[in-house]
Amino acid sequence: MIRIAGLRKSYGSTLIVDDVSLTLPAGGITAIIGPNGAGKSTLLGMISRLLPMDAGTVTVDGLDVTRTPSDVLAKRLAVLRQDNHIAARLTVRDLVAFGRYPHAKGRPTIADENKINEAIAFLDLGALEHRFLDELSGGQRQRAFVAMVLAQDTDYVLLDEPLNNLDLKHAARMMQLLRRAARELGKTIVIVLHDINFASVYADHIVCMQAGRVAHQGQPETIITPEVLSLVYQLPVRVELIDGQRISIYYQEDRTP
C-alpha cells in the first residue's frame, strides 16, 4: 500500500502539488488522470523518490521513500518516466538487463537471465533484442523501457504515460499486459494516463487530479461520468455505455452559443 500524506511541491512560486493526501491500495491498476499541469507526473516523481518533496511523506509498504536506502527501495518499486535519453549505444537486451541491476548488482545469474528473457517475450521484443535503441521507432523504444521496468520484478510499478508513442495495437496490448501482471502476479501498478478511455476500461481505481490537488478518486464508475470529467477537463464530455464499458466522447465541437 502506498500512503501519501500532506505532499507538497512548488517550483519557484508556482504550486505544482498542493497538500495531497492519498492512499493507493495494494494490487490492481491505479490510473492517475487529469489535465496538463495538474501535477500528475510530479506526484509520481515524488512517490518514486526521483523528485524531492517540499513537505509531506510517502510510504511504500511502510517504508518512507526519502529515508529508505535507494537500493532497498529499488527491489520494491520500479519507475519509468518520460523522456529517456541515453548517450551510450545499447541494444534492447542490454537495456532490459539493467532492470536486474537492483538484484544482480552487475553479476547476473541464470535466474536473472530468465527474467530478462521473460520481459523481452512479454513485450514482444524477441525479434528486436539485438537491435540498438537508436535504430528503433519511438514506440519500440518505449516498449523496451517498459520491459526493463518489468524485468526489475518489483511489487510496485509506477509508469508515467507508458502509452506515449504506441500505436493502437501496442497501447491496448500494453494495458492488457499490465492488467495481467496485476491480476496474475499480484503487482500494484500506478500509471499516469492521458487517454481517459484506457483508464476507464483497464483501471481498478482512478485518481483524478486538478490544479495540484486530488479532485476525485474512486472506482471508474464514479469517476468516468459526464459531470466529473466535464468539470475537471473544462470541456463537455459525454459518457456512453458500449459493451458494458464506459467510453467518453469529447471530440465534438463545443456547441454552446
Binding site: L50, S70, N84, G99, Y101, P102, V149
Partner: peptide, 9 residues
Amino acid sequence: TPAIGLGVN
C-alpha cells in the same frame, strides 16, 4: 532518473 530508479545513489 533511471539510475535512481534502479537504486543507485
